[in-house]
Design a binder for these strands. Sequence first.
DNA 1: CTCTTTGATAACTGATCGGTAAACTTAATA
DNA 2: TATTAAGTTTACCGATCAGTTATCAAAGAG
Lengths: 188, 188
Amino acid sequence: MRPTKRDELVQKALKAFYQNGFTATGMDMLVKETGISKTSMYKHFRTKEDLILAVLRLRDEQFRNWLFRRMEELADTPAGQLLAMFDALGEWFSEDGYKGCMFIKASSEFQDRDHPIHKQSAEHKRILETHITRLATDAQLANPALVARQLLLLKEGAIVTAHLAHTEAPAADAKVAAAQLMAANASV
Amino acid sequence: MRPTKRDELVQKALKAFYQNGFTATGMDMLVKETGISKTSMYKHFRTKEDLILAVLRLRDEQFRNWLFRRMEELADTPAGQLLAMFDALGEWFSEDGYKGCMFIKASSEFQDRDHPIHKQSAEHKRILETHITRLATDAQLANPALVARQLLLLKEGAIVTAHLAHTEAPAADAKVAAAQLMAANASV
DNA sequence: CTCTTTGATAACTGATCGGTAAACTTAATA
DNA sequence: TATTAAGTTTACCGATCAGTTATCAAAGAG
Protein backbone atom coordinates (compact mmCIF):
# COMPACT_ATOMS: atom_id res chain seq x y z
CA MET A 1 0.00 0.00 0.00
CA ARG A 2 1.61 3.24 1.14
CA PRO A 3 5.26 2.42 1.90
CA THR A 4 6.38 6.03 2.19
CA LYS A 5 6.03 7.82 5.51
CA ARG A 6 6.29 4.89 7.85
CA ASP A 7 9.45 3.57 6.21
CA GLU A 8 10.90 7.05 6.08
CA LEU A 9 10.29 7.37 9.80
CA VAL A 10 11.95 4.06 10.56
CA GLN A 11 14.97 4.90 8.41
CA LYS A 12 15.49 8.31 9.97
CA ALA A 13 14.86 6.97 13.46
CA LEU A 14 17.53 4.36 12.81
CA LYS A 15 20.09 7.07 12.14
CA ALA A 16 19.09 9.08 15.18
CA PHE A 17 19.12 6.09 17.53
CA TYR A 18 22.42 4.89 16.12
CA GLN A 19 24.12 8.23 16.60
CA ASN A 20 22.61 9.22 19.95
CA GLY A 21 21.53 6.04 21.66
CA PHE A 22 18.02 4.76 22.31
CA THR A 23 17.31 6.15 25.76
CA ALA A 24 19.06 9.42 25.04
CA THR A 25 17.00 10.03 21.90
CA GLY A 26 13.62 11.45 22.85
CA MET A 27 10.52 11.40 20.71
CA ASP A 28 10.67 15.19 20.41
CA MET A 29 14.16 14.92 18.98
CA LEU A 30 12.82 12.44 16.44
CA VAL A 31 10.12 14.93 15.47
CA LYS A 32 12.83 17.53 14.90
CA GLU A 33 15.17 15.25 12.98
CA THR A 34 12.62 13.41 10.86
CA GLY A 35 10.23 16.28 10.21
CA ILE A 36 7.39 13.88 10.99
CA SER A 37 4.82 14.92 13.55
CA LYS A 38 4.51 13.12 16.84
CA THR A 39 0.88 12.26 16.15
CA SER A 40 1.87 10.51 12.93
CA MET A 41 4.54 8.55 14.72
CA TYR A 42 2.10 7.35 17.31
CA LYS A 43 -0.35 6.41 14.57
CA HIS A 44 2.26 4.00 13.18
CA PHE A 45 3.73 2.81 16.46
CA ARG A 46 1.89 2.53 19.74
CA THR A 47 5.01 3.12 21.83
CA LYS A 48 8.63 4.15 21.51
CA GLU A 49 9.53 0.52 22.13
CA ASP A 50 7.53 -0.59 19.09
CA LEU A 51 9.39 1.95 16.98
CA ILE A 52 12.74 0.68 18.26
CA LEU A 53 11.75 -2.88 17.40
CA ALA A 54 10.89 -1.79 13.86
CA VAL A 55 14.22 0.02 13.63
CA LEU A 56 16.04 -3.14 14.70
CA ARG A 57 14.16 -5.21 12.15
CA LEU A 58 15.27 -2.82 9.43
CA ARG A 59 18.83 -2.80 10.68
CA ASP A 60 18.93 -6.59 10.81
CA GLU A 61 17.85 -6.84 7.19
CA GLN A 62 20.14 -3.99 6.11
CA PHE A 63 23.21 -5.32 7.86
CA ARG A 64 22.88 -8.94 6.80
CA ASN A 65 22.20 -8.00 3.20
CA TRP A 66 25.21 -5.73 3.13
CA LEU A 67 27.64 -8.09 4.90
CA PHE A 68 26.77 -11.26 3.00
CA ARG A 69 26.69 -9.51 -0.37
CA ARG A 70 30.02 -7.85 0.31
CA MET A 71 31.57 -11.19 1.34
CA GLU A 72 30.38 -12.74 -1.92
CA GLU A 73 31.75 -9.83 -3.94
CA LEU A 74 35.18 -10.13 -2.34
CA ALA A 75 35.66 -13.92 -2.64
CA ASP A 76 34.11 -16.87 -4.40
CA THR A 77 35.04 -19.79 -2.16
CA PRO A 78 33.40 -20.40 1.22
CA ALA A 79 36.74 -20.17 3.01
CA GLY A 80 37.60 -17.00 1.14
CA GLN A 81 34.27 -15.47 2.05
CA LEU A 82 34.82 -16.20 5.72
CA LEU A 83 38.09 -14.29 5.58
CA ALA A 84 36.51 -11.56 3.46
CA MET A 85 34.08 -10.90 6.29
CA PHE A 86 36.89 -9.08 8.06
CA ASP A 87 37.72 -7.00 5.01
CA ALA A 88 34.08 -5.98 4.87
CA LEU A 89 34.15 -5.13 8.55
CA GLY A 90 37.25 -3.01 7.97
CA GLU A 91 35.36 -1.01 5.35
CA TRP A 92 32.53 -0.50 7.79
CA PHE A 93 34.86 0.63 10.58
CA SER A 94 36.36 3.24 8.25
CA GLU A 95 33.03 4.85 7.47
CA ASP A 96 32.29 8.29 8.84
CA GLY A 97 29.89 8.00 11.71
CA TYR A 98 30.78 4.42 12.56
CA LYS A 99 29.50 3.88 16.10
CA GLY A 100 29.66 0.15 16.68
CA CYS A 101 26.97 -2.49 16.44
CA MET A 102 23.39 -1.36 16.93
CA PHE A 103 22.38 -4.67 18.50
CA ILE A 104 25.14 -4.65 21.07
CA LYS A 105 24.07 -1.17 22.01
CA ALA A 106 20.40 -2.08 22.13
CA SER A 107 21.00 -5.11 24.30
CA SER A 108 23.15 -3.08 26.64
CA GLU A 109 20.53 -0.35 27.06
CA PHE A 110 17.72 -2.89 27.50
CA GLN A 111 19.38 -5.51 29.63
CA ASP A 112 16.50 -7.55 30.91
CA ARG A 113 16.80 -10.91 29.18
CA ASP A 114 13.04 -11.05 28.65
CA HIS A 115 12.85 -7.57 27.16
CA PRO A 116 11.64 -7.72 23.53
CA ILE A 117 14.45 -5.44 22.39
CA HIS A 118 17.05 -7.63 24.09
CA LYS A 119 15.56 -10.78 22.62
CA GLN A 120 15.41 -9.33 19.13
CA SER A 121 19.07 -8.29 19.33
CA ALA A 122 20.02 -11.82 20.34
CA GLU A 123 17.99 -13.17 17.43
CA HIS A 124 20.04 -11.12 14.96
CA LYS A 125 23.24 -12.68 16.26
CA ARG A 126 21.72 -16.14 16.02
CA ILE A 127 20.84 -15.63 12.35
CA LEU A 128 24.39 -14.51 11.62
CA GLU A 129 25.76 -17.60 13.34
CA THR A 130 23.58 -19.87 11.23
CA HIS A 131 24.91 -18.33 8.03
CA ILE A 132 28.56 -18.38 9.10
CA THR A 133 28.25 -21.97 10.29
CA ARG A 134 26.91 -22.95 6.87
CA LEU A 135 29.88 -21.28 5.20
CA ALA A 136 32.29 -23.04 7.55
CA THR A 137 30.61 -26.33 6.72
CA ASP A 138 30.86 -25.65 3.00
CA ALA A 139 34.54 -24.80 3.50
CA GLN A 140 34.90 -28.36 4.83
CA LEU A 141 36.55 -27.27 8.05
CA ALA A 142 37.16 -29.92 10.69
CA ASN A 143 34.83 -28.39 13.28
CA PRO A 144 32.61 -25.95 11.41
CA ALA A 145 30.36 -25.00 14.34
CA LEU A 146 33.32 -24.23 16.59
CA VAL A 147 35.18 -22.26 13.94
CA ALA A 148 32.05 -20.27 13.17
CA ARG A 149 31.68 -19.32 16.83
CA GLN A 150 35.37 -18.44 17.03
CA LEU A 151 35.19 -16.18 13.99
CA LEU A 152 32.09 -14.50 15.37
CA LEU A 153 33.86 -13.84 18.66
CA LEU A 154 36.59 -12.14 16.64
CA LYS A 155 33.96 -10.17 14.74
CA GLU A 156 32.21 -8.90 17.89
CA GLY A 157 35.52 -8.11 19.51
CA ALA A 158 36.68 -6.18 16.46
CA ILE A 159 33.41 -4.21 16.29
CA VAL A 160 33.68 -3.16 19.92
CA THR A 161 37.39 -2.44 19.82
CA ALA A 162 37.19 -0.42 16.61
CA HIS A 163 34.51 1.72 18.19
CA LEU A 164 36.39 2.25 21.43
CA ALA A 165 39.81 2.87 19.93
CA HIS A 166 38.59 4.74 16.85
CA THR A 167 40.64 2.71 14.42
CA GLU A 168 39.88 0.12 11.77
CA ALA A 169 42.99 -1.87 12.75
CA PRO A 170 41.05 -4.56 14.67
CA ALA A 171 39.63 -5.78 11.36
CA ALA A 172 43.10 -6.71 10.13
CA ASP A 173 44.09 -8.29 13.45
CA ALA A 174 40.91 -10.33 13.44
CA LYS A 175 41.53 -11.43 9.86
CA VAL A 176 45.00 -12.75 10.71
CA ALA A 177 43.55 -14.59 13.70
CA ALA A 178 40.73 -16.00 11.59
CA ALA A 179 43.20 -17.35 9.04
CA GLN A 180 45.23 -19.03 11.78
CA LEU A 181 42.12 -20.54 13.36
CA MET A 182 40.93 -21.86 10.01
CA ALA A 183 44.37 -23.36 9.39
CA ALA A 184 44.27 -25.01 12.81
CA ASN A 185 40.91 -26.55 11.90
CA ALA A 186 41.80 -27.35 8.30
CA SER A 187 39.80 -29.47 5.84
CA VAL A 188 38.77 -33.00 6.74
CA MET B 1 40.68 11.13 55.92
CA ARG B 2 37.02 10.14 55.76
CA PRO B 3 36.74 7.30 53.23
CA THR B 4 33.18 6.39 54.13
CA LYS B 5 30.30 8.21 52.52
CA ARG B 6 31.86 9.19 49.23
CA ASP B 7 33.19 5.71 48.57
CA GLU B 8 29.91 4.19 49.62
CA LEU B 9 28.15 6.40 47.11
CA VAL B 10 30.51 5.46 44.30
CA GLN B 11 30.18 1.76 45.07
CA LYS B 12 26.40 1.82 45.17
CA ALA B 13 26.21 4.04 42.10
CA LEU B 14 28.37 1.50 40.29
CA LYS B 15 25.84 -1.23 40.95
CA ALA B 16 22.92 0.94 39.90
CA PHE B 17 24.58 2.13 36.69
CA TYR B 18 25.71 -1.38 35.85
CA GLN B 19 22.26 -2.86 36.25
CA ASN B 20 20.18 -0.04 34.72
CA GLY B 21 22.48 1.86 32.40
CA PHE B 22 23.90 5.35 32.79
CA THR B 23 21.32 7.46 31.00
CA ALA B 24 18.42 5.42 32.33
CA THR B 25 19.54 5.82 35.95
CA GLY B 26 18.43 9.17 37.29
CA MET B 27 19.90 10.98 40.27
CA ASP B 28 16.65 10.51 42.15
CA MET B 29 16.90 6.77 41.66
CA LEU B 30 20.40 6.93 43.10
CA VAL B 31 19.04 8.75 46.14
CA LYS B 32 16.51 5.97 46.60
CA GLU B 33 18.97 3.11 46.08
CA THR B 34 21.93 4.50 48.00
CA GLY B 35 20.06 6.20 50.83
CA ILE B 36 22.35 9.19 50.33
CA SER B 37 20.78 12.58 49.88
CA LYS B 38 21.03 14.47 46.65
CA THR B 39 22.71 17.38 48.39
CA SER B 40 25.46 15.12 49.65
CA MET B 41 25.98 13.70 46.20
CA TYR B 42 26.36 17.11 44.67
CA LYS B 43 28.77 18.09 47.41
CA HIS B 44 31.07 15.27 46.33
CA PHE B 45 30.48 15.51 42.58
CA ARG B 46 29.64 18.63 40.66
CA THR B 47 27.71 16.78 37.97
CA LYS B 48 26.34 13.36 37.14
CA GLU B 49 29.16 13.04 34.63
CA ASP B 50 31.77 13.50 37.38
CA LEU B 51 30.08 10.76 39.39
CA ILE B 52 30.12 8.43 36.39
CA LEU B 53 33.83 9.11 35.88
CA ALA B 54 34.49 8.21 39.51
CA VAL B 55 32.44 5.05 39.09
CA LEU B 56 34.50 4.09 36.05
CA ARG B 57 37.74 4.72 37.92
CA LEU B 58 36.59 2.38 40.67
CA ARG B 59 35.46 -0.22 38.17
CA ASP B 60 38.77 -0.05 36.32
CA GLU B 61 40.70 -0.71 39.51
CA GLN B 62 38.26 -3.37 40.68
CA PHE B 63 38.22 -5.26 37.40
CA ARG B 64 41.94 -5.23 36.74
CA ASN B 65 42.75 -6.30 40.28
CA TRP B 66 40.28 -9.14 40.08
CA LEU B 67 41.24 -10.37 36.61
CA PHE B 68 45.00 -10.28 37.04
CA ARG B 69 44.89 -11.84 40.50
CA ARG B 70 42.59 -14.59 39.28
CA MET B 71 44.87 -15.30 36.32
CA GLU B 72 47.82 -15.64 38.70
CA GLU B 73 45.87 -17.92 41.00
CA LEU B 74 44.91 -20.23 38.15
CA ALA B 75 48.32 -20.60 36.48
CA ASP B 76 51.96 -19.85 37.15
CA THR B 77 53.46 -19.50 33.71
CA PRO B 78 52.83 -16.48 31.48
CA ALA B 79 51.34 -18.67 28.77
CA GLY B 80 49.18 -20.46 31.30
CA GLN B 81 47.96 -17.16 32.69
CA LEU B 82 46.96 -15.96 29.25
CA LEU B 83 44.80 -19.04 28.82
CA ALA B 84 43.52 -18.75 32.38
CA MET B 85 42.12 -15.33 31.49
CA PHE B 86 39.30 -17.14 29.73
CA ASP B 87 38.59 -19.37 32.71
CA ALA B 88 38.33 -16.26 34.83
CA LEU B 89 35.99 -14.70 32.29
CA GLY B 90 33.86 -17.84 32.39
CA GLU B 91 33.49 -17.45 36.15
CA TRP B 92 32.46 -13.84 35.66
CA PHE B 93 29.89 -14.74 32.98
CA SER B 94 28.31 -17.26 35.36
CA GLU B 95 27.73 -14.73 38.11
CA ASP B 96 24.20 -13.66 38.90
CA GLY B 97 23.63 -10.21 37.52
CA TYR B 98 26.32 -10.41 34.87
CA LYS B 99 25.50 -7.66 32.41
CA GLY B 100 28.55 -7.32 30.21
CA CYS B 101 31.43 -4.89 30.32
CA MET B 102 30.81 -1.54 31.98
CA PHE B 103 33.24 0.25 29.68
CA ILE B 104 31.69 -1.07 26.51
CA LYS B 105 28.34 0.13 27.81
CA ALA B 106 29.70 3.50 28.85
CA SER B 107 31.39 4.10 25.52
CA SER B 108 28.24 3.13 23.69
CA GLU B 109 26.06 5.50 25.70
CA PHE B 110 28.58 8.34 25.41
CA GLN B 111 29.76 7.96 21.84
CA ASP B 112 31.49 11.23 21.15
CA ARG B 113 35.17 10.37 20.85
CA ASP B 114 36.13 13.48 22.82
CA HIS B 115 33.69 12.78 25.64
CA PRO B 116 35.56 12.23 28.94
CA ILE B 117 33.55 9.08 29.65
CA HIS B 118 34.36 7.65 26.24
CA LYS B 119 38.02 8.50 26.60
CA GLN B 120 38.24 6.98 30.06
CA SER B 121 36.65 3.76 28.81
CA ALA B 122 39.20 3.57 26.02
CA GLU B 123 41.96 4.14 28.56
CA HIS B 124 40.86 1.08 30.55
CA LYS B 125 41.19 -1.10 27.46
CA ARG B 126 44.62 0.36 26.76
CA ILE B 127 45.88 -0.55 30.23
CA LEU B 128 44.61 -4.09 29.79
CA GLU B 129 46.42 -4.37 26.47
CA THR B 130 49.69 -3.25 28.03
CA HIS B 131 49.46 -5.95 30.67
CA ILE B 132 48.47 -8.72 28.26
CA THR B 133 51.20 -7.72 25.84
CA ARG B 134 53.76 -8.01 28.64
CA LEU B 135 52.51 -11.51 29.46
CA ALA B 136 52.70 -12.49 25.79
CA THR B 137 56.24 -11.19 25.68
CA ASP B 138 57.18 -13.15 28.82
CA ALA B 139 55.62 -16.22 27.23
CA GLN B 140 58.15 -15.75 24.43
CA LEU B 141 55.57 -15.83 21.70
CA ALA B 142 56.71 -15.05 18.18
CA ASN B 143 54.62 -11.89 17.81
CA PRO B 144 53.59 -10.89 21.33
CA ALA B 145 51.87 -7.62 20.42
CA LEU B 146 49.75 -9.27 17.73
CA VAL B 147 48.81 -12.24 19.90
CA ALA B 148 47.86 -9.90 22.74
CA ARG B 149 45.54 -7.97 20.45
CA GLN B 150 44.07 -11.22 19.11
CA LEU B 151 43.37 -12.56 22.60
CA LEU B 152 41.78 -9.27 23.59
CA LEU B 153 39.52 -9.40 20.55
CA LEU B 154 38.42 -12.84 21.74
CA LYS B 155 37.90 -11.45 25.23
CA GLU B 156 35.69 -8.54 24.08
CA GLY B 157 33.77 -10.82 21.76
CA ALA B 158 33.17 -13.32 24.53
CA ILE B 159 32.02 -10.59 26.94
CA VAL B 160 29.49 -9.26 24.44
CA THR B 161 28.30 -12.66 23.28
CA ALA B 162 27.89 -14.04 26.79
CA HIS B 163 25.73 -11.05 27.65
CA LEU B 164 23.59 -11.30 24.54
CA ALA B 165 23.13 -15.07 24.55
CA HIS B 166 22.95 -15.48 28.34
CA THR B 167 25.49 -18.27 28.46
CA GLU B 168 29.05 -18.63 29.68
CA ALA B 169 29.91 -20.86 26.70
CA PRO B 170 31.79 -18.12 24.79
CA ALA B 171 34.51 -18.27 27.44
CA ALA B 172 35.31 -21.87 26.53
CA ASP B 173 35.15 -21.16 22.79
CA ALA B 174 37.47 -18.23 23.23
CA LYS B 175 39.88 -20.32 25.27
CA VAL B 176 40.15 -22.97 22.55
CA ALA B 177 40.72 -20.23 19.99
CA ALA B 178 43.34 -18.59 22.21
CA ALA B 179 45.24 -21.87 22.55
CA GLN B 180 45.24 -22.34 18.78
CA LEU B 181 46.42 -18.79 18.18
CA MET B 182 49.21 -19.14 20.73
CA ALA B 183 50.25 -22.40 19.09
CA ALA B 184 50.28 -20.71 15.70
CA ASN B 185 52.59 -18.05 17.15
CA ALA B 186 54.69 -20.40 19.24
CA SER B 187 57.94 -19.59 21.04
CA VAL B 188 60.84 -18.06 19.16
C1' DC C 1 32.24 25.86 74.45
C1' DT C 2 32.18 27.43 70.26
C1' DC C 3 33.12 26.66 65.17
C1' DT C 4 33.36 24.17 61.15
C1' DT C 5 32.43 20.35 58.57
C1' DT C 6 29.25 16.65 57.02
C1' DG C 7 25.17 15.19 56.14
C1' DA C 8 19.90 14.93 55.81
C1' DT C 9 15.35 16.83 54.47
C1' DA C 10 12.38 18.87 51.44
C1' DA C 11 10.79 22.02 48.39
C1' DC C 12 11.88 23.97 44.14
C1' DT C 13 13.74 25.35 39.14
C1' DG C 14 13.15 24.97 34.03
C1' DA C 15 13.61 21.49 30.77
C1' DT C 16 12.45 17.28 28.89
C1' DC C 17 10.36 12.63 29.15
C1' DG C 18 6.67 9.42 26.70
C1' DG C 19 2.23 9.90 25.24
C1' DT C 20 -2.62 12.15 24.25
C1' DA C 21 -6.42 15.34 22.47
C1' DA C 22 -8.68 18.35 19.36
C1' DA C 23 -9.11 20.71 15.13
C1' DC C 24 -7.63 20.89 10.62
C1' DT C 25 -5.69 19.93 5.66
C1' DT C 26 -4.94 17.01 1.92
C1' DA C 27 -5.71 13.52 -1.29
C1' DA C 28 -7.28 9.23 -2.87
C1' DT C 29 -11.34 6.34 -3.25
C1' DA C 30 -16.08 4.52 -3.62
C1' DT D 1 -19.98 14.13 -4.03
C1' DA D 2 -19.33 12.01 0.37
C1' DT D 3 -16.21 9.31 2.96
C1' DT D 4 -12.08 7.77 4.71
C1' DA D 5 -7.33 7.62 5.81
C1' DA D 6 -2.94 10.00 6.42
C1' DG D 7 -0.93 13.74 7.74
C1' DT D 8 -0.40 18.24 9.98
C1' DT D 9 -0.14 21.84 14.13
C1' DT D 10 -0.67 23.15 18.72
C1' DA D 11 -1.39 22.51 23.17
C1' DC D 12 -1.46 19.70 26.82
C1' DC D 13 -0.83 15.62 30.55
C1' DG D 14 1.71 13.90 34.77
C1' DA D 15 6.22 12.24 35.57
C1' DT D 16 10.89 12.64 35.65
C1' DC D 17 15.29 14.87 34.30
C1' DA D 18 19.75 17.25 36.33
C1' DG D 19 20.73 20.48 39.51
C1' DT D 20 19.79 24.35 43.39
C1' DT D 21 18.48 26.56 47.67
C1' DA D 22 17.42 26.97 52.41
C1' DT D 23 17.13 25.02 56.85
C1' DC D 24 18.46 22.09 60.45
C1' DA D 25 20.97 18.25 63.19
C1' DA D 26 25.06 16.15 64.73
C1' DA D 27 29.69 15.59 65.79
C1' DG D 28 34.73 16.26 65.79
C1' DA D 29 38.38 19.91 66.57
C1' DG D 30 40.25 24.38 68.28
